[in-house]
Amino acid sequence: MRRAVMGLGVATTVLVSGCAADDPNRRAKTGAAIGALVGAVAGHQVDGDKGRYVGAAVGALAGAAVGNYQDKQAAELERELAAEQARGELNITKLSGNALKVGIASDATFDFDSAAIKSSAQATYAKIASVLKDYDKTIIHVVGHTDSTGTDAYNQKLSERRASAVASALTANGLNSARLLTEGRGESEPIADNSTKEGQRRNRRVDIVIKPIIEGQEQQAYTPPPYLGS
């Protein structure tokens, strides 16, 4: 399965790259492409009327249970990552659709212009993987971001490499790679002013978005997270 998922990541990158950056329907096309690829890799068939995966090999949550499931997961992440939050290295927030986001400052994980995870950050990813393994009715999207220094093309590639590095760190700590999708968004989704050093520092980050697999709406868990800028 690992090889199939790695192939999915490569194919996803190709499809996303094939959508013009100025195409107003780019995100919708990307989501459709990822949904189709996931179905192909996992051998699922989708009920077009309900968006349900027929014979899906993953667990799903009943709609009424989703909120409590994600609240418990958020509480456990808060507890396990309290030290990192106190140091300003990451933050945990709730997104629409009961998704969770762990936003990690790039300088807490990577040296400047590098996609190699620092040894000092390995323990953080071990903690994150430990929690995510216990809440397996989710799909995890790892999204890389950069500041606006450098060319668009270079920043895009760097954000992709960093997202892949974080995903590899999670799988190295036992997280099932079949639950992971990676994506780089370059400099396109800033959360601060790129004209200042502090703003650039904040914009260099990796977001781990945890989307619940909801019974009857399974495909939504595989679609890319919404805009993650401010």
Score class of each variant (00 low, 15 high):
residue 138 T to E: 05
residue 176 N to W: 02
residue 47 D to S: 03
residue 197 K to N: 12
residue 218 E to Y: 06
residue 53 Y to L: 15
residue 108 A to N: 11
residue 106 S to Q: 10
residue 208 I to K: 04
residue 28 A to F: 10
residue 39 G to I: 11
residue 68 N to V: 13
residue 23 D to Y: 00
residue 185 R to C: 12
residue 125 Y to D: 04
residue 192 A to F: 01
residue 220 Q to F: 04
residue 104 I to W: 01
residue 81 L to S: 14
residue 134 D to Y: 00
residue 141 H to C: 01
residue 230 S to L: 15
residue 206 V to C: 01
residue 117 I to S: 09
residue 40 A to F: 09
residue 3 R to I: 10
residue 157 K to H: 11
residue 167 A to Y: 11
residue 19 C to F: 08
residue 8 L to E: 05
residue 181 L to G: 09
residue 53 Y to A: 10
residue 134 D to G: 07
residue 191 I to R: 10
residue 210 I to R: 00
residue 214 I to S: 04
residue 74 A to I: 08
residue 138 T to F: 04
residue 6 M to G: 05
residue 161 R to M: 10
residue 93 T to H: 13
residue 193 D to N: 12
residue 127 K to C: 02
residue 3 R to A: 08
residue 72 K to A: 15
residue 19 C to R: 08
residue 28 A to L: 14
residue 173 N to T: 08
residue 157 K to T: 14
residue 30 T to S: 05
residue 212 P to D: 06
residue 197 K to I: 09
residue 170 L to K: 09
residue 45 Q to C: 11
residue 132 L to P: 00
residue 168 S to V: 06
residue 61 L to K: 05
residue 214 I to K: 13
residue 30 T to C: 02
residue 92 I to K: 06
residue 44 H to N: 12
residue 44 H to V: 12
residue 198 E to W: 05
residue 140 I to Q: 01
residue 219 Q to V: 09
residue 224 P to Q: 01
residue 48 G to H: 02
residue 75 A to P: 03
residue 108 A to C: 10
residue 183 E to P: 06
residue 163 A to E: 12
residue 160 E to V: 10
